[in-house]
Design a protein around this nucleic acid. Sequence first.
DNA 1: GTGCTTGCAAATCGTTTGCAATAGC
DNA 2: GCTATTGCAAACGATTTGCAAGCAC
Lengths: 133, 133
Amino acid sequence: MVSAQQYLIEHGIKPSVHRLAIMQYLLNNRTHPTADEVYLNLLPDIPTLSKTTVYNTMKLFIEQRVALQIDIDDRNARFDGVVEAHAHFYCRVCGCVKDLPLPQIQEPEMSGLTVDETHVNFKGTCADCKSRG
Amino acid sequence: MVSAQQYLIEHGIKPSVHRLAIMQYLLNNRTHPTADEVYLNLLPDIPTLSKTTVYNTMKLFIEQRVALQIDIDDRNARFDGVVEAHAHFYCRVCGCVKDLPLPQIQEPEMSGLTVDETHVNFKGTCADCKSRG
DNA sequence: GTGCTTGCAAATCGTTTGCAATAGC
DNA sequence: GCTATTGCAAACGATTTGCAAGCAC
């Protein structure tokens, strides 16, 4: 368990105040937030933050492999600070995204494809929305 | 093997000329096209087609479950006329999307989730792009 | 003629870009 | 001072919306 600061440095990212805050946010809130959610939630603490910086930082994080982009919600890009392989569940009703253990999957041994990411996304209705009727 | 027209009717879709053409296109070209690709490819045959109609029709198809939307390319929505379960491979280099057999996957038996769709997306480099260097 | 289908044009909104201001070494 | 980081404002582009026109039964 290294600090977020150490974690960024180890991945070649200079830990500015903004970058640290965004990384912390991703690690503390495993809600797969959109860029806008990250922006709005950090704004009270960092009033000078701009949405451009959130986008810039996410791009950097993804390049350096400390975050993943999840294409599960066709409206917004979502980001995940957990880079270990896991599956996602998207609730069509409330729009929440939950983590699930990754089912056993064998990568396709197809004619020379190179696979570097595997995404497993389930869609449906979450327990809360079901009980709510 | 029913005709596209029969297929639409069976799914409660009134088969207008435009809808038929779009369905045919999806079934004949398993390239997971974007709305724009469908539009541009049908335009020579149906000069009166508008992009709005492509969007409207895709929405209808998805509601009636004769097409699926694939969230594999974060830039555009892609559509698939093959509704049987299968996995997808996205090439980051050329942007192509290929079908793959669906690996054995057990749905998560999690606290009351209802899963109605399972998406398995691989990302990487396709054989053509690899050989091209 | 009533209701569904279509299409234009405008609006929307998430994301990207260009460039100037700022901060850190 | 030089370079990387940040932020504003504008641009961009895919998708949606409002509404009027067209078509089918």
